[in-house]
Design a protein around this nucleic acid. Structure first.
Lengths: 367, 367
DNA sequence: CATGGCCACTAATAGATATAAACGAAGCGG
DNA sequence: CCGCTTCGTTTATATCTATTAGTGGCCATG
């Protein structure tokens, strides 16, 4: 006896099916939840002109729609593959925790924009403010719009535990200035170790041997790495490491001031100071000037970050450029590469921090 | 013998087709254009898993869909009315011509973000680069999936002819730092006239009577208005206007330098200089120092814009703050106001540029 | 207390989309 | 040459959405 071929039974089975937990939310579902008809839901959601509905009903419907997570279909095929070749308009999302607090975010966005502009890709920027509630909303606002890829940036270089939803996106995700422990996404960060090393090497090559450094807040990755680079450069040049010459700061100008005062009190004063960011260098300048020392005749100073102000200090400060522009470009290039990222394991890419020589370093007299 | 071109049949076919002047593009339309069935279109557009299709067909469908401008429905009711009261997530679009060239854009965005954050609204930023091709794309990337409102900002304060599509949006549009001749949108700009006036008045109130000014590029609105404010302040104080004391610059430091040199060559030197932006003031400082004059003992200087650097000049520069933060907030407040803007005629709102007093102004000796 | 208008909404249905099933062509093994 | 598969697509249909044409209740009116 063939049990599957009786047409009548088949029909019945299919009819029964309407116990449909299809997962998908329909207007009928909303109607049920809101206690009205599907037609009403349609009217409300489309703001159909010429239809009069009570405010009450409207609100109930919208509330129910939100509660059930109703949303328009995505048509994922219509998202343009972010493209280097054709001139069409892909949309790339750029999520960053903060835009305004430091210029780096804007610089990275600018790098990404330049890189994507030629191919005709549009960049949409959203701020997450590192807020657990708003971050998903902000990123949802991007993904709902059918972006082809997402660049996720943090202001501070650091390891992050990516929010869960990053893993379930069906588009390429690139991390900028941060990375995850599981290497699930391509990531790019500045090469702070190399930066610290080349800053220090720069001083060494000018004949300095007593080189002090003022660090940032020690729990920050960047501070650790810049210090590591400093030590490497010393080691490479066979200069013994002297803990006396490392003073802990906190990235602030006032800490730079205090640290410099401390360094000047040493019996064997340094001939050069590597300030691990430009703000610290500002405080350092201040303290040196108060002590009657001239930069760079009496003492050399280098900073880090190449903030706008570094150019306007007197004398202009030799410092290292954070490669945020290049990082933005890199992120886009990854997307445009023939092997656009899926999900797998990716190495962390580090980009160099080039040194800009200005006038705060001079060869040491007896060098 | 023509096999396909019987005119009568052609006509009939054409007549039949327009039976659907619905305007809306459907999958069936795409199918017809791509030479396949509606089902195939559905498969392609949804990237339906488990369905195998030739690359060729896929491409033809996607191409046709793009060509016909197929798009998902927007469900306008689901975009949360930008709301001061409830805690739901409206999405507000922020289009600006350039993000990176000057910090004002970011400041305005920050103002808007702060104002919208509490209400739970998300801000999405797109750059138009003032590009006729990319601007519509960028803004479309915002509007496609439903934003509740659009803020349209330019870097330079000026009158614009708004792109046509701004008029056909069904959401409130606010202009920031620009305005249209037809007053079709609420607009907010800095009150440059009042700013120029209060800068000048500040000098007058410190006893200055010979007050020079170095302008910006004269075709720019801001330059004209600041100059107008300067003249008004003089007039109010019954100080005769002396054309000798107005030197044309171009916002640059080098123009500020040259202009200052010119002013110092006057028989009757000014005792104060109103530089119409901070960069000009930098050049002005330079020239004054070279001439052996001390600020503010020998001569007072005020700037305009309150750029970061104004704080770090020596002496710190008294200048006027561009109210971009406030303008961003204002834009959001308009949206949240009970009478959210539709389309009509709106006055141009001007926000004050507050003066920050630092140390570059001193009362004139015989004042 | 019929009458009619209008308000807020629903029923019915036309129109669109998603998907299961079927179909024809190509390849292939026997 | 036949049956069996697989692939790429269509057919047919179930579902979902938009819209036209009501429906019933409420109120004012005569």
């Amino acid at each position: 006896m063939s049990e599957t071929t009786d047409p009548a039974i088949e029909t019945i089975k299919r009819r029964k099916a309407p116990a449909k937990p299809k997962g998908r939310v329909t207007m009928t579902d909303i109607a049920r939840a809101a206690g009205c008809s599907q037609a009403t839901v349609s009217f409300v959601l489309n703001n159909s002109p010429g239809i009069k509905l009570s405010q009450q009903t409207r609100e109930r419907v919208i509330e129910a729609a939100r509660a059930l997570g109703y949303s328009a279909p995505a048509f994922s095929a219509l998202r343009k593959p972010v493209a280097a070749f054709d001139g069409l308009d892909g949309v790339i999302g750029f999520a960053v925790d903060q835009l305004a607090t430091s210029p780096e975010a804007v610089v990275a966005i600018e790098g990404a924009r330049q890189a994507s502009w030629n191919a005709g890709n549009v960049l949409l920027v959203a701020q997450t403010m590192g807020d657990a509630v708003m971050e998903p909303r902000a990123i949802q606002a991007l993904t709902r719009r059918g972006i082809s890829a997402l660049i996720y940036m943090t202001i501070f270089t650091r390891e992050i535990t990516a929010p869960d939803f990053l893993y379930s996106l069906d588009i390429p995700v690139i991390l900028l200035n941060c990375y995850t422990a599981d290497y699930a996404f391509p990531a790019v960060v500045p090469s702070e170790i190399a930066g610290g090393q080349s800053s220090t090497r720069h001083l060494i090559s000018h004949g300095h041997r007593r080189i002090a450094t003022i660090t940032g807040e020690p729990w920050m990755q960047a501070a650790q790495d810049r210090l590591k680079g400093y030590r490497r450069a010393l080691a490479t040049a066979d200069i013994p490491f002297d803990p006396e010459l490392v003073v802990e700061g906190d990235w602030s100008a006032s800490a730079g001031y205090a640290a410099t005062v401390k360094l000047l009190a040493l019996k064997d004063r340094p001939t050069a100071i590597f300030c691990q960011n430009d703000r610290t260098a500002i405080g350092c300048y201040e303290a040196l000037k108060e002590a009657g020392l001239h930069i760079p005749q009496d003492i050399s100073v280098v900073g880090y970050d190449d903030e706008e102000i570094a150019r306007h200090l007197f004398p202009p400060l030799t410092t290292s450029i954070l490669p945020h522009m290049a990082m933005g470009q890199w992120a886009i290039e990854q997307l445009e590469a023939p092997t656009a990222p899926g999900h797998g394991r990716y190495p962390i890419t580090k980009l160099e921090c080039p040194l800009v020589e200005r006038e705060s370093v001079r060869a040491v007299a007896g060098g």
